[in-house]
Design a binder for these strands. Structure first.
Length: 229
DNA sequence: AATGTCCTCAACCGCATGGGA
DNA sequence: TTCCCATGCGGTTGAGGACAT
């Protein structure tokens, strides 16, 4: 990504460069650190011949130039680790990053927020459904819903989302993550994933969902209607 | 092809923390 | 104990690419 560089004229250090780093700046910083190491970020930019503040140099090195930094797609294993640790730790990105060699807190934070949007969308929908119609029977007044235990409202939303997607044959075993993405391969299971089984008849959809958080199966039966099919 | 909208992610900013004087 | 400074952390921004119309 290439951003234009600019210098502020109103600040005390108006001569400092801001914005994206050029390849030449990267080379200067790398060369300096390789030769002298990291001992003082405040002194480093001037010593390295850079018109940057120490903070900017540190960030550039830690998030991009440092040896061993990984870029690109997160593996399924990394994804699971992030989801699990975020459940336990919240937004402690640096702690989460420390468990993923080569990944930076900044990258993990960005990755999480990009997925969190979808996650929040689901949660907002479910909250709105609850607010407007606290009873599931009222929400789906032309559907029958059977539960064998305290199935949550999100289960209805997830089920309906999956039903609406119709991107896979309905009968079978699938995984669905927090964002509604489905996986035909049940080979992995982490705490935030639900496991779904579908059986479709002519006008009904039977689904069972395993919630690993409480270790219980939720069973649903939805009758097809014009809105959902 | 042109335009608008959405998404990604590098970089910035402000605050918190820790260590030394 | 207090102050100062360097560093670390997390929230936010915005440029540019991707995609849709």
């Amino acid at each position: 990504m290439v951003k234009s560089t600019s210098a502020t004229s109103t600040t005390k250090k108006s001569w400092l460069r801001k914005g994206s780093w050029s390849p030449e700046e990267d080379q200067k910083l790398i060369a300096y650190i390789n030769r002298y190491g990291i001992w003082n970020w405040t002194v480093t930019p001037e010593a390295a011949g850079l018109l940057r503040c120490g903070k900017s140099c540190r960030l550039r090195w830690m998030n991009y130039l440092r040896p061993g930094i990984k870029h690109g797609n997160f593996s399924q294993e990394e994804n699971e680790t992030i989801v699990n640790l975020h459940q336990q730790l919240g937004n402690r990105w640096s702690t989460i990053a420390s468990t993923l060699p080569g990944r930076t807190d900044n990258e993990i934070k960005n990755y999480w927020h990009n997925h969190l949007k979808k996650h929040n969308f689901l949660q907002e929908n479910q909250a709105a459904d609850h607010q407007e119609n606290p009873s599931g029977d009222q929400i789906y007044n032309n559907q029958t819903i059977e539960e064998n235990n305290g199935s949550s409202g999100s289960t209805y939303v997830e089920l309906q989302n999956l039903w609406d997607l119709k991107s896979f044959p309905m009968e079978g075993l699938y995984m669905v993550d927090d964002y509604g993405a489905t996986y035909a391969d049940p080979g992995f299971l982490v705490s935030s994933f639900s496991q779904w089984r579908f059986q479709e008849n002519t006008d009904t959809l039977f689904a069972s969902s395993y919630d690993v958080n409480d270790g219980l199966w939720d069973y649903l039966l939805m009758e097809a209607n014009e809105e959902t099919v």
